[in-house]
Every structure is written in structure tokens, then in C-alpha cells.
Design a protein around this nucleic acid. Structure first.
Length: 956
RNA sequence: GCCGGGAUGGUGGAACGGCAUACACGGAUGUCUCAAAAGCAUCUGCCCGAGAGGGCUUGCGGGUUCGAAUCCCGCUCCCGGCACCA
């Protein structure tokens, strides 16, 4: 007995196939059809999209030179757990959209790659000793197999992974582009560093201290240039996470001061790290949001993250000689500044602190210390020891200490005490504020604690009984006639303008803009990431490797783990895995001035690096000369006319990347644009956030999760066997025992059914619960589609060449019209509902007219491509329908012959009339009144409204 | 606290200011069968009523309108983001 025969015998013993019609569309048949067509597509390269130039060009392709469409998914991190049914939702959505657009005549680029550097593979490597590459590549293969089974129409020649040396070679190249650039604030764009040096050399740009360039020594020159680079090394407060042994970007730290990955405490530490000058692009990242077709909430999140605020810098003179410069959005309230606050880390604090408390120091200001120095030291120490969580918990209660010195208010010469307090952040603005309790709630709270005066400088509205008044109103108490300054009576906006003009005229300050956005911390003390193409010379200065030395391959190491520490040990120091490979770190290179000893950078890039530009590599994945040929970039992503920013035509992914990936990627793209490497201003023109598929999980009384698939609902409760369990709702996960995989669904129903179900369960952008038992609805639908074409018992075609009857034909054209609109608008659930209605109408006919069967099959194809290909072939067509024309509705058949008008009396439907579509309004009115004559009971209607084609409304 | 998004049958969801509940799941009944499953057919928002029929219904309360799930105002609850940003 062959194994095949044995398997069949076993199957039959369990479920005798005796009376299942032999040609029914079953899961087994679906599986057979699906593998066959997947092989067909792969062998013929059906979904290869032709490039205009290069190795992927194909002038004979049916869509060569056609209108392009670039559809993109946020590429996945291939985790060891594999895919569950939630993951492919977006991928199926883009596939349906792409298949539709391809049939509608566009040249569609749709590919899938892998964001494959990252922490989990590295952590697994630390635990097991398995090389992260081994795990990651195995996971990628698993993902590919799972995705392949879904029948996604990707151009597989364009699949890339960020861990491929041929890919990260270009990531490193892009890093060098950024490193070798500076931001010209006058031209508002990045330019090569070489041009900056040329300007210094020629003298057209003065050096910072005015000495000629030629008189500076090499170290001074290098410092001047390095200070302007878009990628730079800085010793700055960073988020140090001892538990992970690495530093993290602001965006990777949660609101409660813990690491997004691993949930370890994060501490602020001054450490030398690589930074990206994303703040230089703050304005453009903000302004260009206008050009994007993105969901408004996502734009808003980016706006808030960038956090542009306009106001002024004001200098407050001090006895220390150097004035304290503050940033304020309310320069109009400067007359109300009754004290100042510096962040504990502010560099001027030490210079300001005197030996002893000055006369008149209030007890509350000293913190109980004998000298200002002791008080400040103690306060600093306490502030530094606070985690972000503690800072937030303490946010309501204002703390601080007087530094023992006064500053002078430049508008009226008033002496005002200077404090340090942790409610002022070192990293924002200038790290110092003028405190105006009358118009700021935080300052008011501080003033109450420290018994500081409060001066209102804006007249509150009538009836205002609060504390600080932040609304608009006329300025009061705001005049210094001796300085020619009077703001009194002006509204906030006018007062701001006048004070800024005064400050600038008198040299006390300037109008200014600051951002919440910080420069992007770009180095990680990990193993599994892109090495930097950077070495350090004998002086410790960073030197870029020339392009010819790329790629810098990630070396093998024995120990993949960075040194990790007690998660609470804030004073630990990072040690990278690469630093232990001394033979790799120490190299002799000839960088143009003879062989010298260098040490390599041992940090690696963060996981975001690869995802900052992968969409560009899909365009030209095999190009060895450049990261993407400009001709290919311009075709697929270039601006589509005046004022268009270019970019991908559709980008689908989860809203969780609203700021991280989407901001970083926009930043890199703009640098590339400035340097002339791409023609598009933005990487992703249209963004669509797909919802999440979540699932129920069930817990018993001990708090243990029970397998969700074994739970039954009865008597208004949920039971696992006899045990009542509690239902929870959330993500799918192994530990919650509620994972359902696409493989399961393909096994039981087939990929087409799974696809149709996911697309029909609701709008793509909405999150919703998974319900396995509802999948059968999609299965039944496809069975009915199958039956309209194929006789289940004979396998014969059920299709006739007799023309369709009028109602069926009209239904078809209405369906075509509706489905086209729904497909273009990404409303797949309603498109499928319309296809179901058409199919249900066909099943009632004795035979299916070919003129309906063919368009039905074509319209089903984007959702259920395998069964559609099979039926298309059975209908007598050779080859694939991937490039067949999507049906077009005949407008003449969309206008109804007769219309049913509901007739309302006082807003309630009391009758209906059926009239010819072209009936005159008066006739409709007459017919309507006659139809509801009974309900009116002889009363004369006060008013009759006829909405043509819609309804009749009678006011009685 | 601030900013976004949401709330429609038992469930997922339809509905240019114009017939609320399309389509699907679940449920009921029937058909086929020795039986069951699958498939197919009919019914299925809620309340009253034997029935004919009537009343009510889009989170809650107001408003605009001939007409509101949809527009406006005020609340409640749920989800997401930010959180001393001067």
C-alpha cells in the first residue's frame, strides 16, 4: 500500500466521502488548485513588474511603460513565533488592491522583504549560542513559506532582507552620505561637507572665530566641520538601559521611563554616542505633512512629536557676567517674571552659586542647607537619582532650591531670584525659563510653594476665578516708559510682536523657534545590526571609510551579548560585543595618506536603519552600481505633477509606527532628496493604517490560560469542560493560548477562503476580534461561486451562451460599478458583499449565462485568485487572468427603469409607490398622495416634498 | 490633565441628510438521510398581539431640518497617543 493510498483510506474511514459530490469545491480541492496556481505564477514570473531600465526591465511585458502603481507593506520582522492570522491582514489587503489595479491596466510593483536585524534573534543567540543569522534566516524562510501559501502576488525578484550584506552595504553607504553632509540653514537643505570646506577655504563663509581657515590647525578644522555634520558623535544625556546593556532613542522609551523592549528601567546618562541631526529637518518634516495623503491622526501625532513652538529668546543679565538665556512662548508676559528657573544640569549653575546665602533669603528657598553650594549639590544629586517614573509621580509637587543669585529683568531692571528645579528640563529650549506665575500654571504652583510674588500681566476675562490665567486679554502692568516700552492694552498676539521688536532693537533677545523633537540617537551597543563604516584615528577623531571599502561586514564573535547589568544599576557603562574582537577593531588602512593604524567603531546601527530606505531598494534590488537607478526611482516614486511630493502610491501598516519608523524614514529620504539621489520629496505619499485582529483568551479561576479553541459558550458563560472561565480580549499570543495561524485556515478551508474572510469581516482600517467559526461563510460563498460555473456532480460547465435576462444583467452592471468603486476606495468588505449578492442571484438560475459568469470570476479574482484562475481556465481561457481586463459597467444599465418611492407622513414611512424612472414630479406627488390617502384620513397635507429618485415626504 | 478615534441586532458589520439593520456568523424550522454531517430552502432587531396589525429602536440628553445613525451643542463609557516641552 502506498502512503498516499493509506492516507486516503484513513481519511475515508474517518469521514466517508460517499455522498460529497465529486466535483464540489472542498478544502482538499482548494489546496490542490492553490498549489498548482502558485507554482504556475512562480514558474512564469507572472507578477514580475518591469522596470524602465536595468536588469529588471522587460519591454515585452504587457504592462511595460503603462501607468505605474507602487503598493507597499510595512515589511515584517521575522519573529520565531511565525505568523498568526492577524499579521497578513494588511498584506492580503494590499494584494487585493494590487491585483485589482493590475487588471485595471496599471504596472503594479508589489514586493515583500524582511526587517531582519533586531533584538529577539540576538537574545535567542545569547541564550542558545545559535548565530542570529541562522535563526533569522530560518525565520525568514518560514515566513516566506507561510506567505507563499496565501497566494500573494509579489515580485519575488525584489525581495530583500536588511541583513543581506548586499543590502546593508547600501545602508552603510547611505550613512556615509549623511555623515558627509551638513545642513545649510540658508539654503534650507543638506549639502556635501566638501562644499562647506570649500566655502571656508575661499573665505566666502567665515569661520566661527573669524580666523582664516588656513590659519587653523587640522584638529580645529575637523572640529568645525564635525560640529555641522548630519551624523555626529556627541557626549550628551542619553537613555541608558543597563538591563539591555544599550542606549535607546527617545522614541524607544515609554512614557513611564522604561524600555519599549523588555520593560527595563531607563536612566539619563551622559555618554558618547552617534546622533543624527534630524532636528535640522524639523520644519520641513512638519511643513511637508501638508503634502501627504495620510490619516489626519497620524499627521497630528507627528506634529505633536516634532512640537514646534514659536516665541523668543530673552537674555537676563547676572552677576556672573554671562546672562541667562531663556526660551519662552510668552515674551509678552516678561513684566510678570518674578523668578527664574534653571534645569539642575544647566551649565551656568556653578558660576552663579555664591559662597553664602545673600541677605533676604527666605528659609523655604534654602532647602535647609547652610550654603547655596550645599543646597544645589544636594538638589542635583536627588534629581539625578530620580527615575522618570518618580519624576512623573512627583510632578504635582514642585521642588527646587534657590541658587543664591539674582538676575535682572531686562525690561525694567527688577532683580529676580534664580532657582534650580527639575520641572525645567535640560533638553528643551535653553534649559532655563523666566517664571511667570500669573500666566503659567506650573510657575504658579512653584510660586505658592516658595512664597514668590505673582504679578498678572494679562487682564483675565470677567468672572475668572482660577489661578494662572493662560487665555487672551489686554496686557496690564506691562510698561517701562523709561525704556520706551509699553504693552498695556495690547492683546497677546500684538504684545508678543511689540516686545520681540523691542528685545531685538535693544539687544536683549530675539524671536525664536524651538522643537520638542530631539536629535536621533543612532548607535546601539549590540551585535545584530549594521556596523558603522567609521574608524577612529590616533587622535580619536571619527573618519569615514571610503565607498570602496564597503561593505563593512559584521564580524563573527563568540559572545553575542553586550555586557548587561543589574537593571537598576544606573552607573554602569556600556560595553559592546564588537569591542571584544580586538583583531577586528584594530586595523591598518590606507585612507589616502599612507597606511596607518585605526580602530573601528564598535557600536552598530539601530533596527530602524534598514527600514529607513528599503522601499527604494525594492525598485532596483540587483543594482550593484548604486542603491537605485535614478530612472527607476523617478518612474516608480517620482512626483506625479506640479506640487506632488512623489513616493509610494499606497503604504499599508500599523499605526504603532506613527512616529518612529515614519519619521526616521522621511528624514533619510529628505537627505537623499537634498543630495540629488532621489526625485521624490517624501517616501510614502499615501498611508493607510490597517486595524489589528485581536482575539479572546480565557482564564480559569487559578489565573491559568486555557486553549481558546476548546472553550464553549453556554448559559451566558464560557466553559472549558465543566470549568467556567473568564473571557479576556487582546492580542494573539502563545502564552494566551489563543493563536490561530493562517496555516490552520489554509488547511481547513484553503487560502482563498481565508483571504475572502479577512477582507470581508470589516473595513481594513478597523480592529476587530477574530472568529474562526465565522470563516465558513467565506467558504460557502466560494462554493457557490464554484457551483455557478461547475456542476458539482458531473464536473461539467454550468455556463450557457444564452444572454442573461434583463434583471440579472442590470444586477451585474450595478455590481461591477459598485465593486470598482469599492476596490479603488479600499472598501473590500462592501465589495465582497456585492459579489455575494450577485452570486446568490445566480444560484437561483437554472444555468449561468457566460456574460455574467466571466465578469463574476474576474471580480472575485483579487480576493480569491486561485479559484478564479481555475474557473477562468474552465471557462475556456488559456493562461492567467492576472492581466485580464477588470469588468467595466455599461452606464446605460445603471439607470433603473422604475423607482420605488417610500412615502413618509411626518417622518414615518406609511406607504410605497412604484413609478417609471422618468415620471414627472407632479405625477409622483399625485401617486404618493393617493397611496397614503387612507393614513391621511381626508386631512389636507400642509406640505408635500418630492425628492426626485429618492422619496416623498408629506407634512400633515 | 491635554489631543485624537470610536459606540448601530445575540456577534462582525452595511447605510451621498432620504426605506436603519445590506452581507456574513450564530439561532430556529424544513428538505435530503437508516442516522448524522455537509449542502440547499424559509424565518430571525426589540416589545405587545393567536392573527391582522400596532408601538419602539443606531451609548445618554438637547437642538437644526419636511426628514438625523449621519450635521450642531452638552454628557457617559471604551480604545490609542502625549504627558512639568516653558
Amino acid at each position: 500500500m502506498t502512503s498516499e493510498a493509506r492516507r486516503r483510506a484513513m481519511t475515508e474511514a474517518v469521514a466517508p466521502a460517499t455522498d460529497v459530490p465529486p466535483f464540489r469545491y472542498t478544502a482538499a480541492l482548494a489546496g490542490e488548485i492553490e498549489t498548482r496556481w502558485q507554482r504556475y505564477w512562480q514558474e512564469r514570473g507572472t507578477f514580475h513588474a518591469p522596470n524602465p531600465t536595468g536588469p529588471l526591465a522587460d519591454p515585452d511585458h504587457p504592462r511595460a511603460g503603462a501607468e505605474k502603481l507602487y503598493v507597499l507593506d510595512m515589511f515584517p520582522y521575522p519573529s520565531g513565533a511565525g505568523l498568526h492570522v492577524g499579521h497578513p491582514l494588511g498584506y492580503i489587503g494590499t494584494d487585493c488592491y494590487a491585483r485589482f489595479q493590475r487588471m485595471a491596466g496599471r504596472n503594479v510593483l508589489h514586493a515583500m522583504g524582511f526587517d531582519a536585524f533586531g533584538l529577539p534573534a540576538e537574545q535567542y543567540a545569547v541564550q542558545t549560542g545559535t548565530h542570529p543569522r541562522t535563526t533569522t534566516e530560518a525565520n525568514i524562510e518560514r515566513y516566506k513559506a507561510q506567505l507563499r501559501r496565501l497566494g500573494l502576488a509579489h515580485d519575488d525578484r525584489r525581495s530583500v532582507a536588511t541583513i543581506d550584506v548586499e543590502f546593508y552595504r547600501w545602508t552603510q553607504w547611505l550613512f556615509l552620505q549623511i555623515f558627509n553632509s551638513w545642513y545649510d540653514t540658508d539654503a534650507r537643505r543638506a549639502r556635501p561637507v566638501a562644499e562647506l570646506v570649500a566655502e571656508f577655504e575661499s573665505g566666502s563663509r567665515p569661520t566661527p572665530d573669524g580666523r582664516p581657515w588656513a590659519e587653523l590647525d587640522p584638529a580645529e578644522r575637523r572640529r568645525i566641520v564635525d560640529d555641522r555634520r548630519l551624523a555626529y558623535v556627541s557626549e550628551a544625556p542619553v537613555n541608558w538601559c543597563p538591563g539591555l546593556g544599550t542606549v535607546l532613542a527617545n522614541e524607544e522609551v515609554t512614557a513611564d521611563g522604561r524600555s519599549e523592549r523588555g520593560n527595563f528601567p531607563v536612566f539619563k546618562r551622559n555618554l558618547k554616542q552617534w546622533m543624527m541631526r534630524i532636528t535640522a529637518y524639523g520644519d520641513r518634516l512638519l511643513d511637508d505633512l501638508e503634502l501627504l495623503d495620510w490619516p489626519e491622526p497620524i499627521k497630528l501625532m507627528q506634529r505633536n512629536w516634532i512640537g514646534r513652538s514659536t516665541g523668543a529668546h530673552i537674555d537676563f543679565p547676572t552677576a556672573a557676567g554671562t546672562p541667562v538665556r531663556v526660551f519662552t512662548t510668552r515674551p509678552d508676559t516678561v513684566f510678570g517674571a518674578t523668578y527664574m528657573v534653571l534645569a539642575p544640569e544647566h551649565e551656568l549653575v556653578d558660576a552663579l552659586v555664591p559662597a553664602a546665602w545673600p541677605a533676604g533669603t527666605k528659609d523655604a528657598w534654602t532647602g535647609g542647607y547652610a550654603s547655596p553650594r550645599a543646597a544645589v549639590e544636594a538638589y542635583r544629586k536627588a534629581a539625578a537619582a530620580k527615575t522618570d517614573v518618580e519624576r512623573q509621580a512627583d510632578a504635582k509637587e514642585k521642588t527646587g532650591v534657590f541658587v543664591g543669585a539674582y538676575a535682572t529683568n531686562p525690561v525694567n531692571g527688577a532683580p529676580i531670584p534664580i532657582f534650580v528645579a527639575d520641572y525645567v528640563l535640560a533638553g528643551y529650549g535653553t534649559g532655563a525659563i523666566m517664571a511667570v506665575p500669573g500666566q503659567d500654571e506650573r510657575d504658579w504652583a512653584f510660586a505658592e510653594v516658595f512664597d514668590l510674588p505673582i504679578i498678572r500681566t494679562v487682564q483675565p476675562e470677567e468672572g475668572f476665578d482660577g489661578k494662572a490665567y493662560t487665555g487672551d486679554g489686554p496686557a496690564i502692568n506691562s510698561a517701562a516708559p523709561e525704556h520706551g516700552l509699553d504693552l498695556n492694552g495690547l492683546g497677546v498676539t500684538d504684545a508678543k510682536a511689540r516686545i520681540i521688536a523691542w528685545l531685538e532693537a535693544n539687544g536683549h533677545g530675539t524671536g525664536a523657534v524651538t522643537y520638542r523633537l530631539r536629535d536621533w540617537l543612532f548607535s546601539r551597543q549590540r551585535y545584530w545590526g549594521e556596523p558603522f563604516p567609521i574608524v577612529y584615528d590616533a587622535d580619536g577623531a571619527a573618519v569615514a571609510l571610503p565607498e570602496s571599502m564597503l561593505p563593512v561586514a559584521l564580524p563573527e564573535v563568540d559572545d553575542f551579548s553586550p555586557k548587561t547589568f543589574d537593571p537598576e544599576d544606573a552607573n554602569s557603562d556600556p560595553e559592546t560585543p564588537l569591542s571584544r574582537r580586538r583583531d577586528w577593531v584594530e586595523v591598518e588602512l590606507d585612507l589616502g595618506d599612507g597606511p596607518k593604524r585605526y580602530t573601528r567603531e564598535t557600536n552598530v546601527m539601530p533596527q530602524w536603519a534598514g527600514s529607513c530606505w528599503y522601499e527604494l531598494r525594492y525598485l532596483d534590488p540587483t543594482n550593484a552600481e548604486t542603491f537605485v537607478d535614478p530612472v527607476n526611482e523617478r518612474y516608480w516614486m517620482g512626483p506625479q505633477g506640479e506640487g506632488d511630493c512623489g513616493g509610494t502610491d499606497l503604504y499599508v501598516g500599523g499605526a504603532e509606527h506613527a512616529v518612529l519608523h515614519l519619521l526616521y524614514s522621511r528624514f533619510w529620504h529628505k537627505v537623499l532628496y537634498d543630495l540629488g539621489h532621489v526625485s521624490s520629496v517624501e517616501p510614502y505619499r499615501r498611508l493607510f493604517n490597517q486595524g489589528m485582529i485581536q482575539a479572546y483568551a480565557y482564564v480559569d479561576s487559578r489565573g491559568t490560560y486555557v486553549p481558546a479553541e476548546e472553550v464553549v459558550e453556554r448559559d451566558g458563560g464560557y466553559f472549558h469542560g465543566d470549568v467556567e472561565v473568564r473571557r479576556e480580549y487582546g492580542k494573539m499570543g502563545k502564552s494566551l493560548k489563543n493563536v490561530v495561524t493562517p496555516d490552520d485556515m489554509c488547511e481547513v478551508y484553503g487560502a482563498d477562503t481565508f483571504r475572502v474572510y479577512e477582507m470581508s469581516m470589516g473595513p481594513l482600517e478597523v480592529s476587530r476580534p477574530w472568529e474562526t467559526r465565522a470563516v465558513v461563510g467565506a467558504y460557502r460563498f466560494l462554493q457557490r461561486v464554484w457551483r455557478t460555473v461547475v456542476d458539482e456532480s458531473t464536473g461539467e460547465l454550468r455556463v450557457t451562451d444564452t444572454p442573461a435576462d434583463e434583471p440579472t444583467r442590470r444586477l451585474l452592471h450595478r455590481t461591477v460599478d459598485g465593486v470598482r468603486g469599492d476596490m479603488a476606495g479600499i472598501r473590500f468588505n462592501t465589495a465582497i458583499a456585492k459579489l455575494i449578492e450577485l452570486t446568490n442571484a445566480l444560484t437561483k438560475l437554472p444555468a449561468t449565462p457566460r456574460e455574467v459568469a466571466e465578469p463574476l470570476v474576474l471580480m472575485v479574482a483579487p480576493f480569491a485568485p486561485h479559484i478564479a484562475e481555475e474557473l477562468w481556465q474552465k471557462l475556456g481561457h488559456a493562461g492567467s487572468l492576472a492581466y485580464a481586463d477588470f469588468p467595466v459597467a455599461d452606464p446605460a444599465l445603471l439607470v433603473a427603469e422604475s423607482v420605488t418611492y417610500p412615502v413618509q407622513i411626518n417622518g414615518k414611512v406609511r406607504g410605497r409607490i412604484e413609478v417609471p424612472a422618468d415620471a414627472a414630479e407632479a405625477d409622483v406627488r399625485a401617486a404618493a398622495l393617493e397611496a397614503v390617502a387612507g393614513s391621511l384620513a381626508g386631512k389636507e397635507p400642509r406640505k408635500v416634498i418630492v425628492v426626485p429618485g429618492r422619496m416623498v415626504s408629506v407634512v400633515a
